[in-house]
């Protein structure tokens, strides 16, 4: 297996009168189809690391290679295009657009990428929602469905453009136990059955245990001695 995502001595410092170090000297390789859980106490920099790995933020030192491509020279537009084509995000909050139906929300990334014809994209979105058990909720608006259903819709949206990697930031953090278990199962299945690579930040121990690998972050550094 080859590293699909490679971080080399990545650091991120917020500039200011008193510079704040969010992440420092992180070197990390994620293999294709791997399920990685990033853990750590609050404010340890795990979300910041996820944003860097997801190309939402750019490191102030080091570099990130995605799918063998060095992203350090990328401008904002190139980074956005890379995110659109290769990455999918699931956040603690579903962040579905309130005015759009569940189906339209899932269609958004496909419409922006504009590779699939509208009817093909629609079929794909319906298929994704179907697989995630949202068959009857296509035409509902986000506020008309439950929290767990919304998070599943967000996962469907993250999968829309068939990304290489799904990055999840505490995807179960805002859900009740049952819905959380459901979302956990889905992300787990994605790696096992569909060969997706999943990197998730989580506090959820059960979730982390199911992962192939757990990475502990303390004070912005990978803690090699970190144990659950």
């Amino acid at each position: 297996m080859s590293a699909i995502l490679l971080a080399e001595q990545v650091g991120r410092v917020l500039p200011g009168e008193v510079p704040v170090t969010l992440v420092q000297d992180v070197t990390l390789a994620v293999e294709h189809g791997e399920f990685v859980a990033i853990m750590g106490p609050s404010g340890s920099g795990k979300s910041s690391l996820l944003y860097l790995l997801g190309l939402l933020d750019t490191p102030t030192s080091g570099r990130i290679l995605l799918d063998g491509q060095d992203t350090s020279g990328f401008g904002e537009d190139e980074l956005a295009t890379t995110r659109l084509e290769k990455l999918g995000f699931v956040f603690q909050f579903h962040f579905l657009l309130a005015e759009f139906s569940v189906l339209d929300n899932v269609l958004l990334p496909m419409r922006r990428l504009a590779v699939l014809a509208e009817n093909v994209a629609r079929q794909r979105a319906e298929h994704l929602l179907d697989q995630l058990g949202l068959r009857e909720h296509w035409h509902k608006r986000p506020h008309q469905i439950s929290g767990g259903q919304r998070q599943r819709a967000a996962i469907a949206r993250a999968l829309a453009n068939d990304p290489l990697i799904i990055l999840a930031d505490e995807p179960t953090g805002n859900l009740d136990t049952r819905a959380g278990a459901n979302v956990r199962q889905i992300l787990h299945d994605l790696t096992r059955e569909f060969g997706k690579t999943v990197i998730t930040v989580t506090h959820d121990l059960t979730f982390a245990k199911a992962a192939d690998r757990q990475i502990g972050i303390v004070d912005g550094l990978i803690d090699p001695k970190w144990r659950m």
């Binding site: 904002e76 956005a80 295009t81 962040f95 958004l108 990428l113």
Partner: peptide, 16 residues
């Protein structure tokens, strides 16, 4: 603002 943030994280360019 949140919608804009999610659109951009999804891969929408600033000009979109």
């Amino acid at each position: 603002t949140h919608d804009i943030a999610i659109l951009k994280s999804m891969g929408f360019h600033a000009r979109d």
